[in-house]
C-alpha cells in the first residue's frame, strides 16, 4: 500500500515503475523501518549506492527517493554517495533486493 500523502505523485509513479521493472525487488522490514524513522526526523538523507551495483542502486534510489522527497540528494544510479555534514547516509542492507544478498554496507 502506498500512502500518496507521504509520497508525491511523481514519487508514487516512480516507485511503482521501479517495482514493475524488477520482479526480484524486495526490501527487508528492517530497512523499511529505518527509512520510516528517517522520514520522521529532520535529517537530510542520502541514498548510498554500492559502486557498480547499478540495478540495486536504481531500486534503492526509487524507494528512498519516494519516501524522502523532497529532501533526497540523489547522486545518480550506481555512484557511491557519501553523506556530507548534516546528512545521513543510508545504504541497502543484507537481505534487500533478493538475489543481492551480502551487499557490503
Amino acid at each position: 500500500m502506498i500512502n500518496a500523502s507521504r509520497i508525491s505523485l511523481e514519487g508514487t509513479v516512480e516507485l511503482i515503475c521501479g517495482l514493475a521493472r524488477s520482479p526480484r525487488f524486495t526490501i527487508t522490514s528492517e530497512t523499511l523501518a529505518k527509512i520510516e524513522a528517517l522520514c520522521r526526523s529532520d535529517e537530510e538523507v542520502v541514498g548510498m549506492m554500492p559502486q557498480g551495483e547499478e540495478t540495486v542502486a536504481g531500486y534503492f534510489a526509487a524507494v528512498i527517493g519516494c519516501m524522502m522527497q523532497p529532501t533526497l540528494h540523489r547522486r545518480g544510479n550506481g555512484s557511491l554517495s557519501r553523506p556530507r555534514r548534516g546528512q545521513v547516509g543510508l545504504a541497502p542492507a543484507e537481505g534487500d533486493f533478493g538475489q543481492y544478498h551480502g551487499i557490503s554496507t
Binding site: M1, I2, N3, A4, S5, T12, I16, L19, A20, P23
Partner: peptide, 14 residues
C-alpha cells in the same frame, strides 16, 4: 502470482 498489486491511499484531509 506475478501480478504487481498496489493500493494507493492518502490521508483524509488530502
Amino acid at each position: 502470482p506475478g501480478v504487481l498489486k498496489v493500493r494507493v491511499e492518502a490521508d483524509l484531509q488530502d
